Amino acid sequence: MLELKDIHVHYGPVHALKGVNITIPPGKIVSLLGANGAGKSTALKAISRLIPVTKGEYEMDKVNLLKKSASEIVRIGIIHCPENRRIFPDFTVEENLKIGTFHRKDKGNFKKDYERVFSYFPRLKDRLHQKGGTLSGGEQQMLAIGRALMGNPSVLLLDEPSLGLAPILVKEIFKIIKEINNEGKSILLVEQNANMAMSISHYSYVLENGRITLEGVSHEIASNPKVKESYLGTA
Rank of each mutant, 00 (worst) to 15 (best):
V155C: 01
G27N: 11
E191C: 06
I47Y: 00
P82R: 11
K40D: 12
K112V: 14
E95Y: 03
K55C: 01
F118K: 05
S223T: 15
P13R: 09
N152L: 10
E229I: 02
Y11A: 07
T134G: 00
R116H: 07
M1G: 12
A197T: 04
F118C: 12
Q192L: 14
I79D: 01
M60K: 07
V190Q: 01
N181Q: 09
S136P: 11
I200Q: 02
I51L: 04
S41K: 03
G27H: 13
P167W: 06
R127N: 12
Q140R: 13
K40T: 04
N182D: 15
S48P: 01
D159Q: 08
G27L: 11
M60F: 15
L165V: 06
E115C: 03
Y203I: 00
P161M: 05
K175F: 12
L157T: 04
A148P: 02
L158Q: 02
Q192F: 07
P89S: 07
I29F: 07
K178C: 01
E183T: 12
V227I: 14
D90V: 08
G77N: 09
D159R: 10
V53Q: 01
L156K: 02
G184Y: 07
S48V: 03
V227A: 05
T134R: 11
T42P: 01
K62S: 15
I87D: 02
E95L: 07
S48G: 09
E220I: 12
Q192K: 09
T213D: 11
G19H: 13
R49C: 07
S69A: 02
S31W: 00
Q141D: 03
